[in-house]
Simulated assay, not measured.
Amino acid sequence: MTTFDLSGKVAIVTGASRGIGEAIAQHFAQAGAKVVVCARKLESLQTVADSINQAGGMALAMACHTGKREQVQAVVAQTLAEWGRIDIVVNNAATNPHFGPLLNSDAAQWDKTYEVNVKGYFWLIQAAAEAMQNQGGGSIINVASVAGLQPATAMGIYSISKAAVIAMTKQLAQELGPSNIRVNALAPGLIKTKFSSALWDNEDLNQKIVAGTPLGRIGTVDEVAAAALYLASDAAAFTTGTVMTMDGGSLVGGILG
Rank of each mutant, 00 (worst) to 15 (best):
N184C: 13
T213S: 08
R217M: 11
D222Y: 08
E175A: 07
L80P: 01
L215C: 09
Q78S: 08
A59E: 03
L80R: 03
T95R: 06
R69I: 00
T245G: 10
Q174A: 09
G67C: 06
N104F: 10
L60A: 05
I24A: 07
R40W: 13
Y114G: 08
G137D: 07
D222G: 15
A31Y: 10
Q30H: 09
G138Y: 00
V37D: 00
S7Q: 15
G189N: 11
A74P: 00
Q71P: 01
L205A: 13
G67T: 03
L186K: 09
N117S: 02
I24M: 06
G212M: 09
A225H: 11
G212A: 12
L103G: 06
Q150M: 10
G248N: 07
I157M: 01
K34M: 06
K194S: 15
S233T: 07
G137Y: 01
A198M: 15
M244K: 08
T213H: 05
K41R: 15
A226H: 13
G15K: 04
D106S: 13
K68Q: 11
P151M: 03
I209M: 14
G84T: 11
R217S: 12
L102Q: 05
V36R: 00
L199R: 13
T153N: 13
A107C: 11
R18H: 15
A235R: 04
V37L: 00
V118S: 02
A81G: 08
G21E: 14
M155S: 12
K192W: 11
W83K: 04
Q133V: 09
K192H: 14
M244G: 05
A33K: 08
